[in-house]
Amino acid sequence: MKTILTGDGRTLSITPQTGFFKQNTALAMENKKIFTDAGIIAVDILGSVGAGKTTLAGALVAYLKGQKRLAAIAGDLTTEIDAQRIRAQGAEVLQINTDKGCHLDANMIKNAMDCLNLSNLDIVLIENVGNLICPSGYQLGAHHRMVVISVTEGPYQVVKHPHIFQDVSVVVINKIDLADVMEVDPQKLIADIHTIRPGIPVILTNGRTGQGIAELATALKLDK
């Protein structure tokens, strides 16, 4: 910070220049280091309300639980419903209620990490608040960010929200069973995603049957 007094000595120019997201980003880096040092892979799951984030987190738990020790952190405005749904699949789950917050932030994750026994875990799945806008600005310290879109959101979800894809490592197109009824062509969604992020893995899933879950676990490097 610099403070400059003008020539006539009557006005001051103060230049704080501290980024509003800086503290969160720094804390996210600390979280990531803690996860990494504990040998944990953390995944931040983004997507609209109803896209299938909880269903897919549950499906990943069901698929991996024999070989990996999993926990999940579920973010929602209120209720414990999602935590219970993932817990039912066989993982330890913490619910974070953000009250009115539209996203999780690194500090909430840090607090949640304090409640988990990290030395007993291999994978932590973090379900972010259902929102395709705000969570993007707040890194949590996960190794992967995955965005879940579903065909029920229509054919223009990708072109309407291109920026959510800026730093994700895997994209899921869920509810693939409903593509025909919704008259949504998944290949077109893939082409749109690849325009924004050439070459990024895009996995087609049916969260209810488990179709595509093995492929998703591989894309996130969770099954190694």
Binding site: L12, Q17, T18, F21
Partner: peptide, 11 residues
């Protein structure tokens, strides 16, 4: 990111 570049005040 977003930040305040400068605050100009009269003292």
């Amino acid at each position: 990111d977003a930040w305040i570049k400068a605050i100009h005040v009269e003292i």
